[in-house]
Amino acid sequence: MNSNTINVYPSSLKPSITSSSSYNYSTTVFNHPEEQQKFEEEIPGRKAVLIWLGTLSFLVFTIVIVGGLTRLEEGGLSMVDWSFMGSLPPITQKEWEEEFEKYKQFPEYKKKNEGMTVEEFKYIFYYEYYHRMLGRLIGAVYTIPAIAFAAKGFFSGKRRVMSPWTVLAIGSVIGFQGLLGWYMVKSGLDENHELMKKYNSIPRVSQYRLASHLCTAFVIYAMTLWKSFDLATKNKTVETFAGSSIFKMVAPIFFSLVFLTAASGAFVAGMDAGLVYNEFPLMGGAVVPSDIMAIEPWYKNFFENATTVQFQHRWLATFVATAIAAFCFYFKKGDKGKQLPATVKKSLNYLLAVVTAQYTLGITTLLTYVPTSVASAHQAGSLTLFTFALWMAHVAKRIR
């Protein structure tokens, strides 16, 4: 054992450390259950860091839902100023009128909301305001505990709970997300933006930037939640079972496909593509609609043709839902299902239940012409499905 390794156990209880650092939940291997129990008792800070990461995960989940509501209620372009620290919303009638006058100078009011009242403006303004304030809260909830935990040595030395590079990576992506949010909003405030001019569309943010913004939120959520799973489970191994090699290989693929489906959904939201064809499974009376490749060059249809964007999202979702259902039933049937470890069985049951609910919500959203309540539930469902797909991938990682 190197000089950096904890050496407080009798030889019969020493864990095998595969990392040069004192302790790392993702690289510690125990030969016997009593070794793991003894070792865990000696690590301070695990619960505190777990609560911190769990809180960040919850806040990111919340801001994604609020961001979706802001998009659905069309409030994303109501705040035309940017302040790093943020500020109080307008309070007096005069302040509201001044804020409203700023909004009137931009294309969304000129081309879409001309004649809007101050009271109507307040309604959309608050969605964007709370969305931005949540973003700043996430920044504070990350930064203050991270500094405190670093001072306590939870990211280095003998008390290390997680890698400092992981902590820095999470913080860097959070900072990047804030900048990306303003970059996204900026595209909707510019009446000379390429996409707005090209398609003579109503003012909206670039679907490319919207998808990037949402995907980055998913990345932050995945980073914090994965490490939360590490700490919550203490990386206890899962026993092998019949077909475990298939499970280990396929689980991360499903996680990637769920992420890809969510990204395609961001393009649907960014282009209001859910309102193009409100029937299922056909589109305009056909499986493949006639205007699916109406834009030149052909490859831009996948990102700028609302028909194609809806088509690829609905059929990617259908493929993923069907594949997950087949995967789950394969492992749950007969003797194979009876022999599954409890953790594996739970991950399959929950993933199947959530993907079924999410697929049903997606169809309902289409058939009901994208009402805010159903569409918001569908977006929450996408992140919930992402959560359970990530959990199954984490279970797969811990199989012996």
Score class of each variant (00 low, 15 high):
residue 85 M to E: 14
residue 100 F to A: 10
residue 146 A to V: 05
residue 269 A to F: 01
residue 327 F to G: 07
residue 80 V to A: 02
residue 58 F to V: 00
residue 219 V to C: 10
residue 112 K to S: 12
residue 256 S to Y: 03
residue 4 N to W: 09
residue 24 N to A: 10
residue 175 G to V: 08
residue 188 G to D: 08
residue 183 Y to G: 12
residue 328 C to W: 05
residue 285 G to F: 11
residue 167 V to C: 03
residue 211 A to T: 11
residue 245 S to R: 12
residue 343 T to H: 01
residue 272 D to Q: 01
residue 180 L to I: 15
residue 28 T to V: 11
residue 59 L to F: 07
residue 277 Y to W: 06
residue 198 K to E: 06
residue 153 G to F: 11
residue 62 T to Y: 11
residue 134 L to H: 12
residue 42 E to F: 11
residue 19 S to D: 15
residue 268 V to H: 04
residue 183 Y to H: 10
residue 77 L to N: 07
residue 190 D to R: 12
residue 55 T to M: 05
residue 335 D to Q: 14
residue 71 R to D: 10
residue 80 V to H: 04
residue 182 W to P: 11
residue 253 I to W: 05
residue 356 T to N: 13
residue 2 N to W: 07
residue 67 G to P: 07
residue 172 S to D: 01
residue 35 E to Q: 15
residue 197 K to C: 03
residue 400 R to C: 04
residue 242 A to R: 10
residue 32 H to V: 06
residue 277 Y to I: 02
residue 328 C to K: 03
residue 192 N to A: 12
residue 336 K to D: 00
residue 126 Y to Q: 11
residue 333 K to H: 09
residue 192 N to K: 08
residue 304 E to D: 04
residue 315 W to M: 01
residue 321 A to H: 01
residue 180 L to Q: 10
residue 20 S to P: 05
residue 366 L to W: 00
residue 176 F to H: 05
residue 382 S to K: 04
residue 147 I to F: 11
residue 388 F to M: 03
residue 185 V to W: 10
residue 95 E to Q: 15
residue 50 L to C: 01
residue 97 E to Q: 14
residue 98 E to K: 14
residue 347 S to P: 09
residue 226 W to V: 12
residue 388 F to W: 05
residue 381 G to M: 04
residue 387 T to W: 00
residue 71 R to K: 03
residue 229 F to P: 04
residue 109 Y to C: 12
residue 64 V to S: 15
residue 203 P to R: 01
residue 354 V to H: 02
residue 10 P to I: 08
residue 238 V to A: 06
residue 114 E to P: 00
residue 251 A to L: 03
residue 134 L to T: 10
residue 393 A to F: 01
residue 303 F to G: 02
residue 29 V to Y: 14
residue 131 H to G: 15
residue 348 L to K: 03
residue 115 G to N: 11
residue 47 K to A: 05
residue 297 P to A: 01
residue 243 G to I: 09
residue 7 N to P: 06
residue 286 A to L: 13
residue 58 F to S: 02
residue 324 I to H: 03
residue 14 K to I: 13
residue 3 S to P: 02
residue 168 L to A: 13
residue 384 T to Q: 06
residue 53 L to K: 01
residue 308 T to D: 00
residue 365 T to P: 08
residue 201 S to W: 09
residue 319 F to R: 00
residue 365 T to N: 13
residue 58 F to Y: 00
residue 262 A to S: 10
residue 94 K to L: 07
residue 14 K to M: 13
residue 133 M to P: 09
residue 204 R to W: 06
residue 84 F to H: 11
residue 344 V to R: 12
residue 157 G to V: 10
residue 350 Y to C: 01
